[in-house]
Amino acid sequence: MFAVFTYLADWLAYQVFGLDPETDIGAAVHFFIEDSSKIFVLLIVMIYLIALIRASLNVERVRAYLAGKPKWLGYSLGAGFGAITPFCSCSSIPVFLGFTTAGIPVGITMSFLLTSPLINEVAIVLLFSLLGWQMTLIYLVIGLAVGMLGGLILDSIHAERHLQAFARKAYENAATGSIDAPETMRLSITQRHEFAKAELYDIFSRVWQWVLLGVGLGAALHGFVPEGFISDHLGQGQWWTVPSATLLGIPLYANATGIIPVMESLLNKGLPIGTTLALCMSTVAVSFPEFILLKQVMLWRLLALIAVMLLVAFTLIGWLLNALAWVL
């Protein structure tokens, strides 16, 4: 089914542009055309279809679902909703406070907020089309696990003590128990179509530059980094490569859309799976702009703790995957 994009790239790169497949530039241009055309087509189709289905889901309804739920259920629900609920990262703070004022524990809220950038429909489309279902599954399981366990740990150390004073007070004064869900809207097909169209426009206009940037970087790696360079130097899964990759992810800031095409190239060049995932997940989940936002509601020590927790988690996961890859 995806072969059509390979033909398109063959035709454009080798016939129209007259490039030689054996050259670096030929390989890079071919990679760029194949991946970007494939991703754009899939994104348009998938964002629209998924938006049709989830038209009636929003953060207000998620809050009503989560409020008053037992904790053990809360973390999995929080992470699950984080994966499927659309919201712009600029809404993280109002969402955090909205959950907090409803008495939802900080850990469950963070399960939601940690999973959200890692897993979303765009990430899944990219993973599936570029790396196949096995990698998609591994990525999904890890993303959800990090969200759930992260939340659990934050609650077990009583993270609410380290919120900014006004947020802590809002949490303490929150009524516990369930809150009313906003009225369920019965949406007609036309309304769903309108929502999906708006959503498609909104998400697409936000991610297309990232796709081009990510695929461009992936193409450059693919075409110009010598065969064997990465596998010779980093391919043995040396223990220090994983924590280094995780640390490297902090100053790098990209969303999942930009990083997944790079992942594809790194894996093809022989970077071990654990090291690759550690780099990519740390880039997506641990970012300065996001942390500066969260500073409005959290004290530095809690932010530092979350950062360290994520870095340790990604390092452990990276080691584990590398070890498993050796065994299998």
């Binding site: 929003n58 809404s91 969402v95 406070l97 006004f166």
Partner: peptide
């Protein structure tokens, strides 16, 4: 923003 009870901006 919290005091208006708003979550989606």
């Amino acid at each position: 923003i919290m005091n208006y009870g708003v979550m989606s901006t």
